[in-house]
Computed example of a mutant assay.
Amino acid sequence: MHMNMTGSEQKNRSDSEAKDYHGQDGAICLHAFSDLSHTSPATFVYLLKECYTYGRRQTATQNFKGLQQYVSQALHNAPQPGPATFIVQCLYIVSLLGLPYAEGFSHLLMSSLRRLRSMGKFQNDFSKAKHLAAKLFHDILSSSIKHEERILIKLLEHFDLELKDIGEAICGSHLDGTLDIAKAFIEHHLSRFMDSESYVTAVTLLEHFSIRLSGDSLLVKMMESNQFTPAEKWATFMGKPMICLLVQKYIDMKMLKKAYDIIKKNYLQEEFPDVHHLYKESVLKKLAEKGCWDIAELRAKNNRQLMEYLVYLAIEYDYIEKVEELCKRYSLDGFANVTGMCLLSRLLQRTELSSLT
Results as ranks from 00 to 15, higher is better:
residue 259 A to S: 08
residue 202 A to F: 00
residue 260 Y to C: 10
residue 217 S to P: 01
residue 238 M to K: 11
residue 181 I to C: 12
residue 258 K to F: 06
residue 209 F to W: 06
residue 296 A to W: 00
residue 275 V to W: 06
residue 300 A to W: 01
residue 202 A to P: 06
residue 197 E to Y: 04
residue 203 V to A: 04
residue 217 S to A: 13
residue 283 V to H: 03
residue 232 E to G: 13
residue 252 D to A: 12
residue 292 C to P: 00
residue 206 L to M: 13
residue 188 H to L: 11
residue 221 K to R: 14
residue 238 M to P: 00
residue 282 S to W: 03
residue 255 M to R: 15
residue 296 A to P: 05
residue 265 K to N: 12
residue 273 P to R: 09
residue 218 L to K: 00
residue 220 V to K: 10
residue 211 I to V: 04
residue 249 K to S: 13
residue 202 A to Y: 00
residue 266 N to M: 02
residue 232 E to V: 06
residue 232 E to L: 04
residue 285 K to F: 11
residue 250 Y to H: 15
residue 178 T to N: 09
residue 237 F to L: 09
residue 291 G to D: 09
residue 275 V to R: 01
residue 194 M to D: 10
residue 223 M to A: 05
residue 194 M to G: 14
residue 216 D to A: 07
residue 248 Q to R: 12
residue 220 V to C: 07
residue 180 D to L: 06
residue 293 W to L: 07
residue 271 E to K: 10
residue 214 S to W: 07
residue 264 K to V: 09
residue 221 K to Y: 09
residue 234 W to L: 15
residue 296 A to C: 07
residue 223 M to Y: 04
residue 223 M to K: 05
residue 260 Y to A: 11
residue 223 M to G: 03
residue 286 K to L: 11
residue 197 E to I: 00
residue 282 S to T: 06
residue 194 M to R: 11
residue 201 T to C: 11
residue 218 L to R: 01
residue 278 L to W: 09
residue 271 E to H: 05
residue 293 W to F: 12
residue 210 S to K: 14
residue 190 L to Y: 07
residue 282 S to C: 03
residue 270 E to T: 14
residue 276 H to E: 15
residue 235 A to W: 01
residue 272 F to Q: 08
residue 287 L to H: 08
residue 270 E to Y: 08
residue 223 M to F: 01
residue 193 F to G: 08
residue 301 K to P: 04
residue 217 S to I: 09
residue 263 I to P: 00
residue 295 I to L: 15
residue 257 K to C: 12
residue 229 T to P: 01
residue 240 K to M: 13
residue 272 F to Y: 07
residue 263 I to H: 04
residue 193 F to M: 05
residue 293 W to N: 07
residue 234 W to M: 06
residue 188 H to R: 14
residue 260 Y to I: 00
residue 288 A to W: 02
residue 280 K to H: 13
residue 266 N to R: 02
residue 198 S to C: 12
residue 204 T to N: 05
residue 189 H to P: 06
residue 191 S to Q: 15
residue 184 A to Q: 14
residue 238 M to H: 04
residue 245 L to H: 10
residue 180 D to W: 02
residue 212 R to K: 14
residue 195 D to G: 10
residue 239 G to C: 05
residue 209 F to R: 07
residue 210 S to A: 15
